[in-house]
Write a protein that binds this DNA or RNA. Sequence first.
DNA 1: CGAGTTTGACCTGCGC
DNA 2: GCGCAGGTCAAACTCG
Length: 173
Amino acid sequence: MMSYPFFPSASTAYSVPSSSNMAIYRPSFPFDVNTNGSDRLFESSMDQFKSNSSEGGSSDSGIVGADMKKDGNSQKKIRSQKYAFHTRSQVDILDDGYRWRKYGQKTVKNNIFPRSYYRCTHPGCNVKKQVQRLTKDEEVVATTYEGVHTHPVEKSTDNFEHILKQMHIYVSP
DNA sequence: CGAGTTTGACCTGCGC
DNA sequence: GCGCAGGTCAAACTCG
Ligand SMILES: [Zn+2]
């Protein structure tokens, strides 16, 4: 788990101290990003999709394919809102304060780097997230959040990382 | 021992 | 219909 952030391609550009600690870069959320027009680490587009969220439960989450094909009529059309943004980072482990459990990894066409699928581990929280590194710019990571968290961030916002996060500083121990 | 990752199989939508 | 492409599951495995 949590292997080191090295990638198949030209990884010589950056060298992460592969001792025991990895660099952690924590960006804010796209919603909270204070675009004061200052430093812009969150480059370019931030797409926003939205569909009808008529279903109150919004318990779309994991619908087992084998299970749902039986019914043939399920609510899987509903799609939570998707927030995608690009980040310039050398590590793909962008800790945003939530706990993510990886549930898949696929290679996409036109991209050498695989795409990772994560899901929030909080009970009742069905937020998904996928991380992908662009082939063209290997230092750019596209993160896509899907859904809204139904719980507060459970991470101490009382340490250095918080300040570093505000500063957009990249730490390498 | 348990939470989290790995990895191939499996499902579905879409285009031809 | 079929095959590809993207998305997900779940069993096995790993690590703390
Ligand atoms: Zn959550």
